[in-house]
Amino acid sequence: MPESNRGVALGASAFLLWGFAALYWPFLSASEPSEILAHRMVWALLAMCVILLFARRGWSWLPAVLRSPRRLLPVAAAAVLISLNWWGFIYSVSVEQTLQASLAYFINPLMSVCLGVLLFSERLRTAQWVAVGLGVLAVAVMTVGYGVTPWLALLMASSFAAYGAVKKYVDLDGMQSLTVETLVMFLPALGFVVYLEATGAGTAFSVSPAHTALLVGGGFVTALPLLLFGVAARQVPLSIIGMLQYIAPTMMFFIGWLVQGEEMPLARWIGFALVWSALCVFALDQLSGVRSRSRARTRARLDLMAQEAEREREPEKHARPDNEE
């Protein structure tokens, strides 16, 4: 599979997992979002160690990264940004505002596209601009539907868009980058967990064994989609990543509406319809682009074959007069 197609598949898988995560964190409602976040950071490092073990990846690369501020700084920035995003998401689904999380990830692809154009000089085709325009209109309608400025959604959207952009500057593969990100946040998170348990405010071991297991499992729920996203972000343009991100908010939308029973006024229905219209335009443009690239590759192969045949005939032309003599 070509690298670009593999990157699209990995990115789509990451956002599917993020969509399902909206069902996971409400099971930890006995804990405050800040405590859940701390445990998420702690156990994410354990999850990455397990993943590295199964992938048979060594640790020889790590000391060089830790000794190099140039390589460590963007990874540390990514760790802080994703931590902000995690807290916002955990809080929103815990207080049954999953539709606001959905709005955040509808806004986020638009921010990713803009960052791709501004920072990396990515160019959008006409159909892609149409899709972005429909997305902007959808976000505007859904924002009006809330009646107030959705600060929580804006926090999640901006932090994750910036996270995707920073990953472009990380000189590590997806697995290595995520390992260092979790390592950077490990000690602060562990310190907070220890403080909570020492003061009696922690819930890790006082609720139930199932609750403890869910806190530990949060590390794997965190690490796997981030690992997939980290690989995808390095293989495909931010403009494509931005469009793939509509998968997660669509799932969150249905979870908030059908599972958690949040209200669905007309404005949100209109916004949802506009988002799907944007996705249809983008999908058709992508299909057209694949066909155009396939035809271009076919023409290139035919031209190459014709050139090789012409070169084979040239010696025969030069040899023919000698044979006649």
Rank of each mutant, 00 (worst) to 15 (best):
V130A: 15
V75F: 00
L84D: 04
L119Y: 06
P315V: 09
S177W: 05
A319M: 15
M48F: 02
V281A: 12
P315E: 11
L16Y: 08
A296W: 02
L115Q: 13
I82H: 06
V8N: 04
A300F: 09
Q176A: 07
L37E: 07
W257P: 11
L214P: 00
P265I: 05
A165M: 03
S92P: 01
A157V: 01
G11S: 00
T203G: 02
E262Q: 15
K167F: 08
R70Y: 05
M48A: 07
Y105H: 12
S92A: 15
I90H: 01
R125H: 09
M48K: 14
F106N: 06
V290D: 13
S206H: 00
Y169V: 08
L178C: 05
P26Y: 11
A44P: 10
A189N: 05
A198Y: 11
L244R: 10
T179N: 14
P225Y: 06
V113D: 04
L137P: 00
A78G: 10
E308T: 10
A319E: 13
A223N: 14
R125L: 12
V275D: 09
L115A: 05
D285Q: 12
P237G: 03
V184I: 15
V8R: 14
G174Y: 06
F54R: 10
H39T: 00
S31I: 03
D173G: 02
L226E: 04
S159A: 05
N108G: 10
S4Y: 13
E96R: 15
A223D: 07
G256H: 01
H211R: 00
T222S: 15
M252F: 12
N5M: 15
Y146N: 04
M264R: 01
M252Q: 15
E324G: 07
L302A: 07
M252D: 12
Q176K: 14
Q176G: 09
Y195Q: 01
Y246D: 06
A79L: 00
G11T: 04
Q286T: 11
G202K: 03
P74T: 08
I241Y: 02
I247N: 05
M1T: 12
P321T: 03
R57H: 12
V231C: 13
P26F: 11
P74E: 00
M252H: 03
T203P: 00
C280H: 03
E263I: 13
P265S: 04
I82F: 01
H318D: 14
R313A: 14
S206M: 06
A198C: 06
W86P: 04
L37D: 01
N5W: 06
R311S: 10
Y91T: 13
M252L: 15
S292L: 12
V136M: 13
F229N: 15
R123C: 07
Q245P: 01
L17G: 01
G289F: 05
R297Q: 09
L227Q: 12
Q286G: 03
V50Q: 02
K167S: 03
Q286P: 01
S92V: 05
R40E: 03
P2E: 13
A278P: 05
E32N: 00
C280R: 07
W61R: 09
L228W: 08
A138G: 07
L154R: 01
F186C: 09
S60W: 10
L52S: 07
P225I: 12
P188M: 06
F54W: 15
C280P: 02
